[in-house]
Design a protein around this nucleic acid. Structure first.
Lengths: 171, 171, 171, 171
DNA sequence: TTTT
DNA sequence: TTTT
């Protein structure tokens, strides 16, 4: 019914961005979330790093392609999906991934490893996340063919756009 | 950048559902979230109930209209919005509301006060939430004119629909 | 940095509840989240069910033991953890689980399969979730030895208890 | 039952940090969340900024005091609370605030306005959030009297610390 | 494999 | 009142 994941962490390695046959773009990001764990018994503090595999489609994959690099700090919202696959010994294996529905680049523009070279071409927009989903027109999703020349697409529709003036509720 | 609210609670009074001039439907729901607070000093347990005003547009308002009543248990996802208005003394006042982007009816079908009478007319679908937003075709949003005769619309697009087969990632 | 999962779904099979050598209780719950997916191209609606493995420790495991059964509807909050293990062929395998930090029983008391028989013994408390973590006194966590005779423990500390009167902020 | 807010945004003005009579520290932060709204009808993109008032107690207030300034980018998790108060005309007014249960400083160390001067004194720890609640020993919460000389306290207990080895589940 |  |  509800299957929601929220992550804030750092990218461990430069993302992989590909296109499937239909031309739709997809990205794979390895994200680390590190937490400090304080053991009350021993009064010691240890650290645990959890590694997540995040899959991003279409517009989100495009933003990954342009702006996300090893070290980038990201906010990710998505859902869990466990895929079944066959290994070389023909045995069933399972992999759990996060399918992203929203992504934001965190920190200042200058923090971003990819921020520099794309200036003046649409540029870096850490505040302008792009939401995935069918809402995005196909023309935006297929933008992988002309990567940096076009401006960054406007973000997808807001969460719940009021039909008219939000300050004009009939209550 | 991220403005997200998640609530699970009970509806305090039958919702108000209206349409604005354009015909777009909007609902207002008062939702209670009760938490048990345990005071470690006194070893006493008290209860606090927080009341939230949730605004739901279009398809979500329609589901409220059909299935939500006083006592309904709901999952709400949305964002905070503080509106400014003028009181009778012409003084600025502020009201904070949650603009819903997703809603789910919780519990069993038989729990729902409105579940009974609408059976056979499209019916109760506690598992099928409807997401708000521009993604919903206008024809669905304007469904308030012919309320119960049409089937419950299929839920809005999933969070991030892969372009093709989710099990056929190029990685 | 942030590793958060929120699930609302139904339990697929009666939970397993065990104790490890130290006597600490732990539960394993299989939870289904079903979503309706609407394909805009084909105008068809399909359904996808995702299965999650949720691990609950101490007080939460105790509540699972008493009140959660196949069919129960739950709210779960937790974090992702991927464990490494060796299969029979001595090959590395990975399993991703959700370590719960909060759980709530949803729906009405009468919805709950375990609600009936435990009445008068501490009883069902769908509104009183128990939060995990070291915050819970050991005496509560170890309560598995005297299961149903003691009352349900008061919920763990609230999220952020103000030191004094919440209505007496110095701002 | 569940009353949860998640925010990522920028601080609009230097926080106010006070102590109440008991000596407990409390902070008030004004946080902006800006979203880009794309109007599909007009094909125009506008921006909306929502301002939130976040209240942080004890250890979290202490971290605010040391590291948060106008411009800081923050992750906030908390719950909604609407307070009632009397204005000068003795009329009831309502104010909705977010009571924080977790906070993280986002971006790189060097992004943080307060990062510079406190180096070598316990210093900036953007990765080490501090969670609120009674779980924090009073000695940490009352640290406002000796502000910068003591090291930043270790973060509060992790979400759900397994009793023993997380890799030694009995399932 | 990131970050502090 | 922030940020882009």
């Amino acid at each position: 019914m509800i299957n929601k994941v929220i992550l804030v962490g750092n990218v461990g390695i430069d993302p992989e961005v590909r296109a499937i046959e239909s031309g739709v773009k997809v990205a794979r990001v390895r994200l680390a979330t590190t937490e400090r764990i304080f053991n009350r018994q021993t009064n010691e503090s240890t650290e645990h790093t959890e590694w997540h595999t995040v899959i991003l489609w279409r517009g989100l994959a495009d933003v990954v392609d342009r702006f996300v690099r090893k070290g980038s700090q990201l906010y990710i919202e998505g859902s869990l999906r466990t895929r079944e696959w066959m290994d070389k010994e023909n045995q069933k294996r399972y992999t759990t991934e996060i399918i992203a529905s929203d992504m934001k680049l965190l920190g200042k523009r200058s923090d971003n490893p990819a921020g520099g070279q794309s200036a003046g071409q649409g540029g870096y927009q850490p505040q302008g996340g792009v939401q995935g989903g069918y809402a995005a027109p196909a023309s935006q999703a297929g933008g992988y063919a002309q990567p940096a020349a076009q401006p960054v697409q406007p973000a997808a529709a807001p969460v719940v756009p009021p039909a008219e003036d939000p300050d004009d509720l009939p209550f």
